[in-house]
Write a protein that binds this DNA or RNA. Structure first.
Lengths: 216, 216
DNA sequence: GTGTCAAGTTTACACTGTCAAGTTTACATC
DNA sequence: GATGTAAACTTGACAGTGTAAACTTGACAC
């Protein structure tokens, strides 16, 4: 099926990847509104209708780009988690840092991922795309789930907190105060100072209890 | 300036309000993608260019609708806060419920509010529009801010948590499990069971510490 | 009446997604 | 090699979109 490593005459050879790459570039340059089938086509050097043919419409293109975004998103979390000490608490703190780093470094792609509103046909595929990223969260939260409790509760808490924080930081009122940190009970200190503009993640976790969460 | 209570010949009389109302109806019926200048115009019975003339482009229309959305959003929080016991803890719990109720009852409007990406010209106006809603949060969080601490830290925590939770519930993976509750340390139990589909907000806060947050 | 100005209209244009039809290429089969 | 077929595009057309400029209508001050 993949007998076209390079463009051979009429066939492009690697159009799908080229279109996704073009789409990510468009997102990076001009935000969500800058992404269109025709611009992707022009950038990939194909006719204006080629992307729609490939991805079955603009929603398909956006989903394909979002799938690539989820893969990079997941990788950002894993990159942070695999660095430094490997205690469960360190790993949980660091996937949150990786989460926020991705949101900060790829705002438009992050926007696309979490602004995706698909019809029922694509929503299942979208869930498949995002599942590996959620799995990182699940694996990392697992050590903190008390016996007999539903893991999804603490997962939801961590996910909600970091997701809301990322959105508020990247677009909302907090964007004016990027150095703002979050501190509350110990389960929240994992998010402290994650968006240091200089890229040096200050450690502001001093004085916290050693457990993540006094789950009752 | 408002000498046109009804439509008098050429002038519409109350075009601005009619367009905003039409826009909200379009959002409610078909989501974000269903909102356009021309559809608003048709629904308000004016020419297709009238909305752009009024609001100086589609971004202006969207901002005007978002301003109305923020007002309703704020009112939803206040309605919940002013009901029931009036301890600081009750009020904080209830503005979160009001927050989530609004997100659930007005998903497209909530989407519009928090997906708004404005150029630098409109972003200041947008901040003015959202300020009263944020003020509700600030006032409600104030009793929980320890002396000498920056109030914005606990505000950010609560806002992030409820914002992320609302988004995940309304659009994301959690949408499949609307009855999911969040429980963790006491500061988080305010969000427990906020999205009961039957509309009866179950109280699942039993066994929590009486203080909101062991802020250290 | 006259001037002025805001409020809408009209017209036109570029851009967008989508669809139908046609063209080119690859490949299997004879 | 010739042929059929399916996939991978291209081409052309169309409706819907935002936007800008020019025009018209109405209200009001003088």
């Amino acid at each position: 099926m993949s007998q076209h490593p390079d463009k051979t005459g009429h066939h492009h050879g690697n159009l799908r990847a080229a279109l996704i790459e073009a789409g990510i570039a468009l997102l990076t340059e001009g935000g969500l509104d800058n992404l269109s089938l025709r611009k992707c086509a022009a950038r990939a050097g194909v006719s204006h209708a080629a992307p729609a043919h490939h991805f079955d419409g603009v929603d398909g293109l956006r989903m394909a780009i979002a799938a690539e975004g989820f893969a990079r998103f997941r990788q950002s979390m894993l990159d942070f988690a695999d660095t430094g000490p490997q205690t469960p608490r360190d790993r949980l703190r660091n996937i949150c840092r990786g989460y926020l780093a991705f949101a900060r470094n790829n705002p438009a792609l992050y926007d696309l991922i979490f602004s995706f509103r698909a019809n029922s046909k694509l929503i299942d595929q979208m869930r498949l795309n995002s599942a590996p990223a959620y799995q990182v969260l699940r694996d990392t939260c697992a050590p903190f789930v008390p016996a007999g409790k539903d893991p999804v509760e603490i997962e939801t808490q961590v996910w909600s907190l970091v997701h809301g924080y990322a959105l508020l930081n990247c677009q909302g009122d907090l964007a004016a105060h990027p150095r703002r940190t979050m501190r509350c009970c110990p389960c929240l200190t994992i998010l402290a100072a994650p968006l240091d503009p200089a890229g040096k993640l200050r450690d502001a976790f001093g004085g916290c209890a050693p457990h993540i969460c006094t789950y009752q």
